[in-house]
Design a protein around this nucleic acid. Structure first.
Length: 741
DNA sequence: GAGTTTCCATTTTTT
DNA sequence: ATGGAAACTC
């Protein structure tokens, strides 16, 4: 970015004025300068997609084709939206404000607040999280007496969401569609669920898209208004769009008598979200959908070495349904290491070797922040975590339980929601008995009944029942205390602002006391999280703004700082890149996943292969693939076969170490682990761990890379117990990571 | 209404 | 193995 001094952008001289285009290759330039008419940019991994997107945005503005608010720019994640905003600001040399730039959902929320009345909502509608959705659905579906063993509520919610993804309002669901699930009652449940949402003045995520699309479909005046407004549309990750997103884009893009200036950027080879409604078909059909569309292919990769690209290309070539695109190295010097494929005995060895190699690489001068372990499924992370902790390698898990999804955060948010909007029944229901106030399911039922018969929200019903002495005794006192706390907090909110008010409410309601009294080991962390939440609150002007942000941006920057190796799923790694990427678990059944194969057949296999392609292309310098002969799944060991994807990697780009002996020799030697090629000697292996452990004795002083110095207090053949000077309690460790003093 | 026990499933995830 | 949710008891 620094290569473009922003001052040049505002020069009137044509030469200088186009300096932001100077360092682009011809395809990138074409993608940016083809401003009018539909354009599909097929951007392979690492071909400068984000740069093209942001430069195109700036180009449209700088050539005065449109004002900032006349461009609609859509991304999938908040992270992508944020990055785009920052980079556009940088190109323009001033903060990019007043733009229609955001995620599909954030943009739809903004539109829906303007036209909420067309679908029976008021513009202050609440956006529900998954928790609320599920609780609401469970309430709504009771009359149907669904066998929740066979058809669990999350499954039904999934069906409804999938319908919403496809733009199907309840009326549009056909009989045939409905009959597949829960004895054909889902459409009826869906209808009731939607009605209840409207009653609550609430939306789920799907509704944001569905309602707005419905408005655009049925209100020509509203549609025309947006047609006049948006002259240019930019879409990121087009291969991930689902049907409703496609319909929404199409409605906005197809302007009568005007060109469709829609530019979609995507990569069909990186489509990995079909299981949640994404339609690869959208990108494959682009030319048909938007007549006169031009296509630009970005195939010059500036990220990875020649071998990494070769391996990835060889793999993805096995897919049939492709638009066709070949990644070429954009660099002349690109030689680099071959992709390393390592076969190990079992999943424990795999974790140990990955960990050991990460340490070796670190010793060779690579930062941990430039390394990642990418797994197929979440359950694989545990083994790696264990080994990383034992060996003292700092790591971070990406995509675990996120900040705003933690129980204590959701509770606190529910308190804020009730404060913000007393009619938010779902939030009220959540806080009513948290902490315990003697309100169980029966009590809640009573409140619901009262609220329904009087057509008032739950909070009002509660007040009424308290006044009428219908709620009394200990329960009544506790509930009254909650209502009083809410009332006094409203005064404080008006006088002293939202931060003080929220602090007061959490204190007075007894919510903080609940965690303070909690003796479980997580309690202090939860209190810490609550503090962090209050801190974040201060960044917003009002409670309402904060809640809107939280509903749409379910992420929160936490301790980014220091160098750690990243541990995440392949899905989570999309869009990221690292110098060194470890890819464990390449075994039949794990990767490709058996379940995907069973459910998705050949299409499923192709998606898994794309996932593998995404994994390999995350690596800039080194890609290391592992497979184990046995894997521990839950309790027991299961034999596993190498993944078919391994055979699909072209030999000229790969080194294969099919036994761990050579690998260990390489790990210990000063040579790079990639030097390889040493002939394997199949010799009976002694147990090196047992040998090492035996050399430790009770009372020995030892040093651990993470925990420091300590004394051995117990030892058996594989593990030792150590009391460290600077750590509480006794640590049970594998002796491999200890150094005898 | 709350605490205890048993049973069950267990890919991928954003908004 | 493990955690989460439904079922069961006090």
């Amino acid at each position: 970015m620094s290569e473009h001094p922003s001052s040049a952008l505002f020069s009137s001289s044509p030469d200088q004025g186009e300096s932001y285009l100077a360092r682009l290759n011809p395809e990138q330039r074409a993608a940016i300068e083809t401003t009018d008419g539909p354009l599909l940019v097929l951007a392979g991994a690492g071909t400068g997609k984000t740069r093209v997107l942001t430069t195109r945005f700036a180009h449209i503005l700088l050539t005065e084709r449109a004002k900032p608010w006349q461009i609609l720019a859509v991304t999938f994640t908040n992270k992508a939206a944020k990055e785009m905003r920052e980079r556009v600001s940088l190109l323009l040399g001033s903060p990019a404000e007043g733009l229609w730039l955001g995620t599909f959902h954030a943009l739809c929320a903004r539109m829906l607040r303007r036209h909420a009345d067309y679908v029976g909502l008021s513009s202050s509608f609440t956006i529900l999280d998954t928790d609320d959705q599920l609780r609401l659905l469970k309430q709504v579906m009771t009359p149907w007496q669904i066998d929740t063993k066979r058809w669990p509520a999350p499954g039904i919610l999934g069906v409804i969401q999938r319908w919403k993804d496809r733009g199907l309002t309840p009326e549009r669901v056909t009989d045939a569609e409905d009959s597949d699930f829960a004895d054909g009652h889902v459409r009826a449940i869906y209808t009731a669920y939607q009605a209840r949402l409207i009653q609550l003045n609430a939306c789920d995520f799907g509704d944001l898209m569905l309602h707005v699309t419905e408005i655009l479909r049925t209100r020509p005046d509203v549609l025309a208004q947006y047609h006049r407004l948006f002259r240019y549309i930019l879409v990121d990750e087009y291969q991930d769009t689902n049907t409703i997103q496609y319909l929404w884009l199409r409605l906005l893009a197809l302007r009568p008598g005007e060109p469709s200036n829609i530019c979609c950027v995507g990569d069909d080879d990186q489509s990995i979200y079909s299981w949640r409604g994404a339609e690869v078909g959208n990108i494959l059909r682009f030319e048909k959908d938007f007549p006169g569309a031009q296509i630009v292919r970005l195939e010059r990769n500036y990220r990875s070495t020649r071998h990494i690209l070769g391996a990835a290309a060889g793999l993805i070539a096995h897919n049939d349904e492709r638009l066709g695109k070949t990644l070429r190295s954009g660099r002349d010097d690109a030689s680099g290491e071959k992709v390393l494929v390592v076969g190990v005995g079992d999943s424990d060895e795999e974790a140990r070797d990955v960990c050991g190699m990460a340490q070796k690489m670190r010793a060779e001068g690579h930062s941990l922040s430039e390394m990642a372990i990418l797994v197929r499924a979440g359950f694989q992370t545990r083994a790696f975590e264990e080994k990383l902790v034992q060996s003292g390698v700092p790591y971070r898990i990406v995509g675990g339980v996120r900040f705003y999804e933690r129980a204590e955060i959701r509770d606190a948010l529910a308190y804020m929601r009730v404060l913000n909007q007393p009619s938010d029944d779902l939030a009220f229901e959540r806080i009513l008995n948290t902490p315990k106030r003697g309100m169980g399911p029966a009590g809640v039922q009573k409140l619901h009944a009262a609220a329904r018969s009087r057509h008032i929200p739950l909070t009002a019903a509660t007040q009424a029942l308290l006044a009428e002495k219908e709620l009394k005794g200990k329960t009544g006192d506790l509930v009254r205390a909650l209502m009083t706390a809410l009332d006094t907090t409203r005064d404080i909110l008006a006088r002293e602002g939202h931060v003080v008010a929220v602090e007061h409410l959490l204190e007075e309601s007894g919510y903080l006391a609940m965690w303070q009294a909690d003796t479980s080991p997580e309690a202090p962390g939860r209190l810490e999280n609550l503090k962090e939440l209050v801190r974040a609150l201060a960044d917003f002007g009002t409670l309402g703004e904060f809640l809107e942000h939280v509903a749409l941006v379910m992420e929160h920057d936490e301790n980014a700082g220091d160098a750690r190796i990243s541990l995440m799923t392949l899905h989570g790694a999309k869009g990221l890149e690292f110098d060194i990427v470890f890819l464990p678990g390449w075994e039949e059944g794990v990767f490709p996943s058996q379940r995907t194969l069973d459910e998705g057949g050949l299409k499923g296999l192709e998606e898994e292969r794309r996932l593998a392609y995404v994994g390999i292309t995350r690596a800039r310098k080194h890609a290391l693939i592992f497979h184990a002969a046995r894997r521990r799944i839950y309790a027991n060991w299961q034999p596993s076969m190498p993944s078919r994807f391994l055979e699909e990697l072209p030999d000229e780009h790969v080194i294969r170490h099919e036994a761990r002996d050579t690998l260990h020799r390489a790990l210990r030697s000063a040579d790079s682990v990639f030097a390889g090629g040493a002939p394997l000697v199949a010799r009976r292996r002694r147990d090196p761990l047992a040998e090492q452990a035996a050399s430790f004795q009770l009372g020995d002083r030892v040093r651990h890379p993470r925990f420091g110095e300590g004394i051995i207090v117990a030892a058996n053949h594989h593990h030792v117990d150590v009391a460290f000077e600077n750590e509480d309690g006794i640590k049970h460790l594998q002796s491999t990571f200890l150094e005898k003093l």
